[in-house]
Amino acid sequence: MRNGNRKCFVLGITTFIISASCLGQGIYAGINGGYGFPSGRMILPSDQKTTYSGSSSSTLYTSNKYSLGKGIDFGAYGGYMFNKHWGAELEIGYLIGGTSTSTNEDDSPTIPSTTTETRKGNILRFTPALRYQIGENKLKTYITAGIIIGMASGTDEIKDISGPNTGDNIWTYSGGPTIGFHGAIGLMYFLSNKLGISAELTGNYQNWSPDKEVLTTSTLNGVDNLSKMPLSQKETDYQASYTKDPFNPTPATSPSISDRIYLPFSSLGLNIGVHIFFGGK
């Protein structure tokens, strides 16, 4: 029975693909991958470098901007061409985010210190999009535009080396969907009627407002601090609206509550891919 169902399913799909092809339309699918450079960046704490000369000191501040959207991305998509120009598709992609770092160095002759903050994010993106393509021959130009629904995660690590002491704290951000916009312009070269290779400029524009921040690592000179901390110091719930009463403070056994924050996940990048068209000409 199970085997019979499977055969029916495969037959159904095949019939659908062939019938779609008969109408001069067609199903298509593909895989792609590339690199996204940071775009729509926001502020990361400035780099600071304090140097000493005799009894005076000076600090050099350098602005830092970042987006967690930078990094390597790859994905797969499938869609349907309604006619030779317009199609609708769904892409599922994953971003392995690169790191963004800010550094605060103090070359004090008594206690030199260095604090490094490193942020990193990953995101699973579902992108329903419209495809618009032109071109009669082997080479086609296309534009895709759509909405990104993302499920993101991120980490923020602050490493503090002060004299002989080394502290390390890692916060993890999670929860809260992110909605953004996707656009791409590309060229596709068909090696045969069915198989093409593509190269495109891709833009993904979204910010992420996480629901929760959890301190997952806290050590001083390699000794764990986390177990000594109450929950209110380890966990923060980001809320759109909440009420606080100083006469009835939130107990230390509950997560802290704070205003929503936004983390940038935008990128502009280059993707290459392989495209298979199941439809007719």
Binding site: I43, S46, T50, S55, S56, S57, S58, T59, L60, Y61, T62, S63, K65
Partner: peptide, 20 residues
């Protein structure tokens, strides 16, 4: 990017400087 001399008294006759 800018440098602040931590030992000097900040001047009030010119604009403040801060990060972008």
């Amino acid at each position: 990017s800018y440098t602040v001399n931590n030992s000097a008294t900040p001047t009030t006759g010119s604009p403040s400087q801060t990060s972008q």
